[in-house]
Design a protein around this nucleic acid. Structure first.
Lengths: 202, 202
DNA sequence: TCTTGATTTGACCATCTGGTCAAACTCACG
DNA sequence: CGTGAGTTTGACCAGATGGTCAAATCAAGA
């Protein structure tokens, strides 16, 4: 294993290749379903070589998850309490859906983890995530009190946005099996926009 | 393996115990994450004894999935084209949410399968499921044409119902991590009801 | 009770999988 | 160049896992 000096050119390249490969494999098969050989092959490395960069399969998975958590929560983080309520929320939803479209592997990575009880990120959920959600829920409540948006349970409002947007990435096969040729996101975007416009109008 | 006569008392009991145990294990760990030993232990059988009733791990999984698919789709199947539109849809949603509450393992079993690309039920999706959804989508369209409910993309309307209701079962850990003590379904039911009332009112 | 098919099990096997290690090879830099 | 750190690999290992099998045990009808 490399010492903890500044990473060399090769280290940067290989670490990145490993994480990229791991994202493919973990998101498609879950933690248990992924094999180190598979990840190594996809990264263009031998298994021992891969384990030269990460001490274990678990370490790769952890690195991936924690590295992506911020990205994943960025849209919610960006919800601005000083902005125009309806506009802020609809733009949050738009960014969230965009994310499902552009980063479906990331979505499925988290989905896999969550469906199985989130054994490896339970802490992040009840600490970082909960704190962020509670804070934004307070903003929503404030807007409701001002009469800017309809009064609803703020947490469930956030859950509904997650559910609706991530559904298209997480259960893409199902959606595609039902929508023959149609691009799922093409129809989803206006549908979801309409939905929340109606729902949030006081 | 037992001959294909009428199943004996013992066969019935053990097959049922195996499927029940398999539901626990597969829904919690996914196909690859589940082990035959684990299922056998949970069913109170030895591994060879379990494999006396089902020829393979795969066979148990298949039997489970196909045995539960009907149950899973029953609420949608029951959507009555001759009923009162708004009432029919809201009652479908209610039953679907009830199902997530009472059968979360089943929900997660399918979720696990879907997130990973549904390798084992792809056919059922593009045949049985698609046919059912297309048929019910036509009913929704008819209601929209009659002006009984707001005009929306019928397929996405159905997807949204699935997303919102199943979210509470599939990602229960996440929901519970954020809602401290609160029963998730307690708040979800009125929220979702309000949402669709507003959305569907023409 | 006796017989026969149903049920159960301990022992076993091949394969897969995460991980190790020493030896070989490469690269950057003095 | 030469050299030492960084990188790569073939061979290997231990444990887990899906599955097999012959022998033992059990259940129920004649």
């Amino acid at each position: 294993m490399p010492k903890d000096r500044a990473p060399t050119r090769i280290q940067k390249k290989n670490r990145a290749a490993i994480l990229e490969a791991a994202l493919n494999v973990f998101s498609a098969h879950g933690f248990r379903g992924a094999t180190v050989d598979q990840i190594a092959a996809e990264a263009g490395l031998s298994k021992p070589n891969l384990l030269y960069y990460f001490p274990s399969k678990e370490a790769i998975h952890t690195a991936l998850l924690s590295g992506l958590l911020d990205t994943w929560l960025a849209p919610l983080h960006d919800l601005d309490e000083n902005g125009e309520p309806m506009e802020e929320i609809l733009s949050y939803i738009k960014r969230k859906l965009q994310m499902s479209r552009e980063l479906p592997r990331e979505s499925r990575l988290f989905a896999n983890e969550l469906v199985q009880g989130a054994p490896r990120i339970h802490d992040a959920l009840s600490n970082d995530l909960k704190a962020l959600v509670d804070q934004k829920a307070a903003v929503l409540t404030h807007w409701m009190n001002q009469g800017k948006i309809a009064r609803l349970h703020p947490h469930h409002l956030i859950f509904s946005i997650w559910a609706l947007t991530q559904h298209y990435a997480d259960f893409e096969v199902q959606v595609r099996a039902i929508l023959d040729d149609e691009d799922p996101f093409e129809g989803a975007a206006p549908f979801i926009d309409t939905l929340y416009r109606k729902l949030l109008t006081p």
